[in-house]
């Protein structure tokens, strides 16, 4: 068992190259420390150079630029929104004005039409009245002349009837007789 263990140790040492005395944890092999520390320092310096010289300023500027762009974009959007709402208000106002104007024009037109109509009606009434009066006058004239004609016709007829019966036509008597008849 002892020899076997020794063999294993020797085998481990071969594989490890340098882990001769300590087969346990390679982490505790002090002989590799200087190597690891040297390369660690090199690595850290390299990463520090990469980050501080190139990467971090670059990322920082990109982030700042983006923040600036977002802020200015939001401001611009806000402004545009304001403008849009202003435009909408102006539009609404124009619309309301136009409505009022239209209503006013309609009212005016209506009033004018009503006035015209009234005037026309009044004039027509006047004319009608004049015409009616004229017509009345004419009718009464016609009526008078008709009465006269009737008297004339009646007298002529009476004279003719009297003549036909062979009597002497007394114009004065016929006239009075017709006049009394017509009255009665």
């Amino acid at each position: 068992m002892a020899t076997q263990t020794q063999e294993a140790v020797a085998h481990g040492a071969d594989a490890a190259g340098h882990v001769a005395a300590n087969v346990g944890m390679p982490q505790l092999d002090i002989s590799t420390f200087s190597n690891q520390i040297f390369w660690l320092v090199v690595t850290l310096v390299l990463i520090y150079m990469l980050l501080s010289r190139v990467a971090l300023p670059r990322i920082g500027s990109v982030l700042a630029e983006r923040r600036g762009m977002i802020t200015s974009d939001i401001a611009a959007a806000e402004e545009l929104k304001e403008k849009a709402s202003e435009a909408e208000q102006a539009y609404q106002k124009a619309l309301a004005d136009a409505r009022n104007e239209a209503a006013r024009i309609i009212a005016e037109a209506k009033a004018e039409i009503a006035k015209d109509l009234q005037q026309a009606t009044a004039r027509a009434d006047e004319e009608l009245a004049v015409k009616a009066a004229e017509a009345e006058k004419r009718i009464s004239a016609i009526r008078a002349s008709a009465l006269e004609s009737v008297t004339l016709v009646a007298r002529d007829t009476a004279e003719a009837v009297v003549a036909a019966f062979g009597g002497a036509v007394d114009a004065k008597a016929v006239e009075t007789a017709v006049a009394t008849r017509l009255k009665g």
Partner: peptide, 21 residues
């Protein structure tokens, strides 16, 4: 634990502080 062993990259046994491992 073998995965943690520090080995020189280009053969040899000796590990000095500058050895590429």
């Amino acid at each position: 634990m073998d995965q943690f062993i520090v080995k020189p990259l280009f053969g040899g046994d000796a590990i000095y502080w500058y050895t590429p491992t």
